[in-house]
Design a protein around this nucleic acid. Structure first.
Lengths: 154, 154
DNA sequence: TGTTAATATAAGTATATACACATATTAGAT
DNA sequence: ATCTAATATGTGTATATACTTATATTAACA
């Protein structure tokens, strides 16, 4: 049986977890910020996650999927599926590598053009955030986020 | 046509977006941290997102779904679907409110018991993070995440 | 009080995400 | 050269997420 005391204790813990849970607050901020970036990128027809993936490919031409998963902090299967969507949009090319187990990613011409449109939109959001939060805070935040990721990776 | 110069420029931008994109770095950290929390909660059979939702319900007994969406920074439809899963697990009760459009959430006895098991596991991860990152940094981080969310909400 | 406007939610659809398992290919050892 | 172990990826399944549209209920107004 769970009496009123139990329920009151839970209620107190609820306030604590809501304010201090790193996971919850990260996920919540992710959700909200993703909306902002998605909105800004809307004219291009891609979402923030797709922009990030395409930019990662742009910086790592001819990289096989498995090697991209690590720096993106993403499961290979997730990456594989996300890439498929971009391939269907004609923005990304996926082809067999020399090692025929590997799948090599490359942007298409169309993908490159789209990124050139998208980058200024991305910059717009970044600048807006910097104005609102201040550059120093943002820098510290980015640093901490990256450290957090490092701590968790085994 | 996109010449080598274009591709080189994109490559440079790739490094910049990877290091400074708030959205990407938030999502990446979310993914990685979620794995850690999920792992810690594994014995309970629920994931970090489900823990957060249940704790939110614990702190807001009898709240209708729509009113929970705002503080969780989550779409109502998402909340609705996530709650359904917990209902199927027997951890959450969803019933019609006085206003018969509303769906009222309440934890079941089983849900309450599970939370009591889960909370120490959650605390374990939080303590681990505090040790690795330092309490001050974590506090600042949580603060910034919450501010970010506020800035974005219109 | 009957009609319309507002509100709360669910359902349809698409993307994002990870884990466990299956499959294909290469590398290694004998 | 063959069998086995290691590696790279895809598939099945489940959850998380949001947007659009449909439905049900209440409120508001004439």
């Amino acid at each position: 049986m769970h009496d009123e005391t139990t329920r009151e204790d839970l209620k107190k813990m609820s306030r604590i977890t809501g304010k201090t849970c790193v996971c919850f607050n990260l996920r919540k901020a992710s959700r909200l910020l993703s909306l902002v970036y998605d909105q800004a990128l809307k004219p291009t027809g891609i979402k923030a996650t797709q922009f990030s993936l395409m930019m990662a490919v742009a910086g790592n031409r001819g990289i096989p999927i498995g090697k991209l998963a690590r720096p993106l902090g993403m499961d290979r299967s997730t990456l594989s599926r996300n890439a498929k969507i971009l391939e269907n949009k004609g923005l990304l090319e996926i082809e067999e590598g020399e090692d025929r187990r590997e799948q090599i990613f490359n942007l298409t011409e169309e993908g490159i053009s789209l990124l050139q449109e998208a980058i200024p939109m991305w910059e717009g959001v970044q600048l807006e955030l910097a104005e609102k939060m201040g550059n120093e805070r943002l820098t510290v935040l980015l640093n901490d986020l990256q450290d957090l990721g490092r701590e968790t990776k085994l």
